[in-house]
Amino acid sequence: MYHTIAQAIIKSIMADEYVTKLPTEKALMVRFDASRSTIRKAIDVVFRHGLLRRVQGSGYFIIKQPENSGTILNLSIGFDQAAMVEGGPLTSKIVTFDKILADERLANQGNIEVSTELHRVIRLRYLKDRLYSLEESYFPKAIVPFLSEDGVKHSIFAFLREAYDIYGSTTENYVHQVRLTATRAQLMNEPVGDKTLCLDGINYLANGSVFNFSQTYFVYPDLELYYHTENIDLQN
């Protein structure tokens, strides 16, 4: 239940419903008809997504994104690309939607076994009708038995939450620059060999199983990266 509440709080923050500070735990308990422990778990999820700042004795304050940024990719949110982007939800054009067996390259990329059966989803993503990214995603069929075409057109992670109660536990992200291959350049209408920002991601369940891995190539102008960390005093 706390995952659902966390998603609702995230949507409220992204919609500027909470401008400066998160409501008190008591107010959230009333709003969501939930216990204090459930609300605290939900708030912790939102905090780990980099949307809140803890102030001891004062509560949780909304982290403001820079006003001069056109788009900010929040790497702390990771499991839901629709929530990553300032300025509106992403829309999708499906390029490939099929099933394949993982070869050695994909097995290494996704930290899975060779010949693992995968759902493959290749999509062009658009923000405000402008090409945002090319996304190549894979979902092990043993964890995700079925993907609907409607789910693939919209938020796959929302589909996974609703259909299988799948929530990511940990995510590994690697951001680097790559040169576009001929195939990717043609899909994105970009010059072959051009450098672009690439995000490699692997999403794990709490038991350590991979439920998704992907490579995303970004072409949207003025893209900025944001990542949230919590400092821990290792001496105590």
Rank of each mutant, 00 (worst) to 15 (best):
I77P: 00
E86D: 03
G88V: 02
F159N: 03
E190F: 08
N74L: 01
K26F: 03
G208L: 08
A34Q: 06
V219N: 14
L180T: 05
R54K: 09
M14T: 11
D233T: 12
F79N: 05
L51H: 11
L131P: 06
N207Y: 14
M84T: 10
I166C: 00
T20R: 06
L234H: 04
S69D: 07
D33E: 13
H176G: 07
K21W: 10
R31T: 08
N108P: 01
V192A: 08
V46R: 06
L124F: 00
L147F: 04
G57C: 12
V121R: 01
S92V: 03
L160S: 01
K128D: 10
V55K: 15
F159Y: 13
Y138R: 03
L147M: 09
N108H: 11
V95H: 05
N231L: 03
S169K: 09
K41Y: 10
L73R: 13
Y126C: 12
K93Y: 11
G59A: 10
L75G: 02
Y132Q: 11
H176K: 14
L147Y: 02
Y220L: 10
L223H: 07
E136L: 08
F139H: 02
V114N: 09
G208A: 04
L131Y: 10
Q186N: 05
D16V: 14
E117M: 04
D165N: 06
R123L: 01
D80F: 13
A27D: 14
K26P: 01
S214M: 14
Q56C: 05
I13N: 12
S137W: 00
K64M: 03
V30D: 14
N189A: 10
T196K: 15
E135G: 13
T71S: 13
L106H: 04
R179C: 02
S209L: 14
V175Y: 12
E172N: 09
F61K: 10
E190K: 15
L127I: 09
M14S: 11
Y226Q: 15
S69G: 02
F218E: 13
E224M: 12
G193I: 00
I143Q: 07
V46Q: 05
L131S: 05
I166M: 00
R179I: 02
V175P: 05
T196Q: 15
F157R: 01
V85W: 09
T24S: 15
L73A: 11
F157A: 02
A82D: 13
I5F: 07
G201W: 06
V46S: 05
V192N: 09
P23Y: 12
N68Y: 10
F159G: 03
N236K: 14
G87F: 09
V46F: 09
I156P: 01
I232E: 07
V45I: 15
Y174S: 05
P140A: 02
V114A: 05
G201D: 07
L225N: 09
R53Y: 09
P23T: 11
G57L: 11
I13F: 06
I5Q: 01
A142P: 02
F213K: 07
L160Q: 00
T38A: 15
D165F: 09
H228K: 13
N173G: 04
H49G: 02
P191G: 11
H49T: 04
R31D: 08
R130S: 15
Y204Q: 04
N236T: 13
